[in-house]
Amino acid sequence: MGKVYLVGAGPGDPELITVKGVKAIEQSDVILYDRLVNPELLNYAKDKAELIYCGKRPDQHTLTQETINALLCKFAHQGKVVTRLKGGDPFIFGRGGEEAEILKENGIPFEIVPGITSGSAAPAYAGIPLTHRDYSSSVSFVSGVSKTAESEEAYWKNLAQGSDTLCIYMGVKKLPDICERLIRHGRDSNTPVALIHWGTTDKQQTVTGTLANIVTRAHAFKNPSMIIIGEVVGLREKIQWFENASLEKTKIAQAVIG
């Protein structure tokens, strides 16, 4: 019997993977990796390691979850060391819990290697602290689509009246509906909002606004993007750093070329 590592690859910056995550990649015979995994991380793999792309876009899956589950079991039963390399953290909207259940049911040894989730990393790179003594004492990581038995209306009503800061995954497509529901259920329409596209990577872009106008301002933004809602977004004007640093690097490079 082999072994499976469910590894969080982090939010995009390849330096944000954990040391334990790198060690799992280095010793694996097979690596099944997702679309949002930085391809630079695959350079840690052994020369003969089998690399299998499992990328998922909205409404378009290269491999179904059932197929991925079957492959994990198949390779482990062949006595191979397997890394399931997932963007962010495997247990935060990464379906790692489902994969762990399947492995347990099939008697396959496994380990969970946590990763840095984009819900905390993307706003950090955008200069937005999720909590702050003066603005936010609570934060919720939220899916843009409710898969529970709870109705959509009740789901957003609870969120509107809940945490000071909301970090919404997979919500860009439903942004107009999200803003409308939050306002209708009592969230101030002037509440600051940020969308962060490809957070922590050299493609990172951030747009800010309010619940009342962010839909217009962020009309060109697509997935992968994190939505951050709360007063802490206003701190970006003071402490944004990553995009400023990237812009400065570009200016220096252009000056050298010129």
Score class of each variant (00 low, 15 high):
79 G>I: 02
41 L>E: 07
173 K>Q: 14
219 H>S: 15
137 S>A: 13
143 S>R: 10
26 E>C: 09
75 F>K: 05
121 A>Q: 12
114 P>I: 04
178 I>W: 11
93 F>Q: 11
69 N>I: 04
241 W>L: 10
2 G>T: 07
103 L>P: 10
135 Y>E: 08
117 T>L: 06
20 K>F: 10
61 H>M: 08
256 V>M: 03
230 G>L: 04
58 P>H: 02
242 F>Q: 03
60 Q>W: 01
219 H>K: 10
151 S>N: 06
48 K>G: 09
60 Q>D: 13
39 P>V: 03
89 D>N: 01
124 A>K: 04
20 K>Q: 11
41 L>S: 02
161 Q>R: 15
236 R>S: 08
32 L>S: 03
164 D>G: 08
165 T>I: 04
158 N>H: 15
85 L>Q: 01
29 D>Y: 14
37 V>L: 04
48 K>H: 13
108 I>V: 13
133 R>L: 12
12 G>D: 08
161 Q>M: 08
142 V>I: 14
182 L>G: 09
125 Y>W: 05
21 G>M: 00
51 L>R: 07
252 I>R: 12
120 S>R: 08
194 A>M: 03
105 E>D: 10
42 L>P: 13
9 A>P: 03
31 I>E: 00
193 V>W: 07
6 L>F: 02
150 E>S: 01
181 R>L: 04
150 E>K: 12
155 Y>P: 12
74 K>R: 09
185 H>T: 04
228 I>G: 09
171 G>V: 12
14 P>K: 01
38 N>P: 01
62 T>A: 00
22 V>Y: 05
97 G>T: 02
35 R>N: 03
189 S>Q: 05
73 C>T: 06
56 K>G: 06
128 I>A: 11
146 S>F: 01
241 W>P: 06
79 G>W: 02
174 K>Q: 13
200 T>Y: 03
247 L>S: 11
70 A>K: 15
93 F>T: 08
231 E>V: 11
91 F>E: 08
159 L>E: 10
171 G>D: 05
40 E>Y: 06
22 V>S: 00
34 D>T: 00
101 E>T: 14
108 I>P: 12
63 L>H: 13
255 A>T: 06
108 I>G: 02
235 L>A: 02
238 K>S: 05
251 K>Y: 12
63 L>W: 01
82 V>H: 07
185 H>G: 10
245 A>K: 12
171 G>H: 13
212 A>C: 11
150 E>Q: 15
151 S>D: 11
99 E>N: 02
150 E>C: 14
197 H>F: 14
243 E>H: 09
204 Q>Y: 05
43 N>L: 11
88 G>Q: 03
249 K>T: 12
107 G>T: 06
183 I>V: 04
59 D>E: 10
246 S>H: 11
210 T>P: 02
15 E>V: 06
46 K>T: 00
252 I>A: 12
214 I>Q: 07
144 G>M: 09
41 L>P: 02
210 T>V: 07
93 F>P: 08
23 K>M: 04
89 D>Y: 03
248 E>F: 12
8 G>M: 04
64 T>Y: 07
94 G>L: 13
41 L>F: 00
148 T>Y: 07
42 L>S: 09
121 A>D: 15
104 K>W: 13
132 H>N: 11
240 Q>D: 14
219 H>P: 00
158 N>Q: 15
96 G>Y: 03
252 I>C: 10
76 A>R: 10
227 I>H: 13
6 L>A: 00
16 L>W: 01
154 A>L: 14
